[in-house]
Amino acid sequence: MNTKVGKIITHVCLIVIGIVWIYPFIWMISSSLKTNKTYLTSGINPIPEKLNWENYTRAWEVANFSTYFINSVLITLGTVIIVVTLSCLTGYALGRVDFPGRKVVIVCIGALMFIPSGYTIIPLYQFMKFLGLSNSIYGVILAESSGAHVLFILLFAAFFSRIPKEMEESAAMDGCGFLGTFFRVILPTAKPVIATAIIMQFIWTWSSFLVPLVLTLNNPELRTLAVGMLSFVGKYQTDWTGMAAGATISLLPVIIVFILMQRYFIEGISGSVK
């Protein structure tokens, strides 16, 4: 009996705190349906006086969010694919093969985690220009994929190092080479870690700002949502409700990705660290 009461109390607490927790989002969504004037003065009341859907039309059409949305999707997908592939391969090599120089590579990667990254975007821009990739969507993807993805590499390495040796051996017995073993036997077991890496990289790239901003200078039609959000802010004038609508639009895909993959998410991290 005691546990039943406890359970109910737990649920009540979780729901009450949960509502407070997501209140800012309710507020954001309700703001996206208000007018700029009532947004500032309605105080505690979250309910808009009438539903101003034109905020969404304004964001989608005038502020060009339809284009930015597709750009964001493409850039994020491209980056996620590259980053997850690279760190998965590196992680496998580090976690599975005791090649000469392995220790050195691991120490280097560990040290990289704490090296401060650049504080100016200028060298990155110059470099992309040098490669002939500035003002193209490839340039943005490549720049977003740059850096050492220490966390992912370590996650993958830790996960792969825990796979029983027998799996590889039996695969080898069936005539699989190194590649065959990796793709047919090992990779399918790594789903949780892959999902984790996808979610986290997705979140980072989706909200990344400075890199896409500077690398799409001459080509505003290549901007992303996070960059486009700024077009609502002016020195003398700000369109808060348009911005709230924009924020709601750009939040949707991330939530969907999280809900789809959250099943694997925790499993992914714990599977590697165990």
Binding site: V227, L230, V233
Partner: peptide
Amino acid sequence: VESSEAEYQA
């Protein structure tokens, strides 16, 4: 306006 400095620097 908020980001123009970075854009012009680049």
